[in-house]
């Protein structure tokens, strides 16, 4: 059985190259061209990776959610492979997000971590999707694995809007979302360059990882040879 996630074999590599380029230029501007923040000084520069990582982690989870819905709607294995890829990349981004956040928090807040609503809901998100990856490892039957993990993904996705709104719904240590009006103009360019850089990297990794998942699925879905008992 064909599970085709490889219609444009060279595309992910091109996107990967673009991602590295954007991230390199954005980080250079962020580290050497943009001024330090008035109050926080140099530490604020971690924003240029922290905020793009946050946006893209939520975006990867959103794509996983879309894949889950399409898989359940169409029963097309292609989307199971894509979901697996998106969750994996999303989990890596969410983990990086927590690490970057801790590194930023120590010199500004004075603590590495606190059970603030934003941090707690983000940790829940990380572990929920990590759990789905574990679930996928434990289930051998591809159909059950796909259905269960798609259902789990749709339910776990509920946490994404909660992460986003946590800083508005509750008192929190974490600041509210920034907007162009709360961020000096000199900080916009590196922030946006890196946002696209990480978006491209994420896209390329999801495409490549989906290929690997597709190849594995193709093997798993081969019907047993005729005349042989199973």
């Amino acid at each position: 059985m064909r599970v085709d996630n490889n219609r444009f074999p060279r595309l992910p590599w091109i996107i990967l190259g673009l991602g590295i380029l954007f991230l390199a230029i954005g980080s250079y501007i962020g580290l050497f061209v943009a001024p330090p923040e008035a109050l926080m000084g140099q530490v604020q520069r971690i924003m240029y990776v922290h905020v793009p990582t946050a946006w893209n982690a939520l975006l990867a989870m959103t794509f996983a959610f879309v894949c889950a819905v399409i898989f359940l709607f169409k029963s097309d294995w292609k989307w199971d492979a894509r979901m697996e890829a998106a969750i994996e990349v999303g989990v890596v981004l969410a983990f990086l997000l927590c690490c970057q956040g801790a590194i930023w928090a120590k010199p500004t807040w004075g603590v590495w971590w606190d059970w603030d609503p934003r941090l707690t809901t983000t940790a829940v998100l990380l572990f929920a999707f990590l759990g789905i990856l574990a679930l996928r490892k434990f289930v051998d039957d591809p159909a059950r694995r796909a259905i269960w993990s798609a259902v789990a993904t749709i339910i776990a996705y509920v946490d994404v809007p909660i992460v986003y709104y946590s800083v508005r719904w509750w008192n929190s240590l974490h600041q509210l979302q920034s907007s162009p009006s709360t961020v000096s103009r000199q900080f916009w360019l590196p922030l946006r360059m890196n946002a696209f850089g990480i978006l491209f990297l994420m896209t390329a990794f999801i495409m490549l990882r989906a290929r690997v998942a597709s190849m594995r699925l193709e093997q798993e879905l081969v019907p047993p040879p005729v005349g042989e008992s199973v």
Binding site: P107, W109, Q175, L176
Partner: peptide
């Protein structure tokens, strides 16, 4: 004691650049 920063990020005003001393303090604060 935890300090919370708001969502405003401002470039230092001209003539009030973050100086080296302030920077070293910030590093120590870890």
């Amino acid at each position: 004691l935890m300090v919370s920063h708001n969502n405003e990020y401002r470039a230092p005003k001209a003539g009030h650049a973050v100086n080296k001393e302030e920077l070293q303090k910030l590093m120590k604060s870890t």
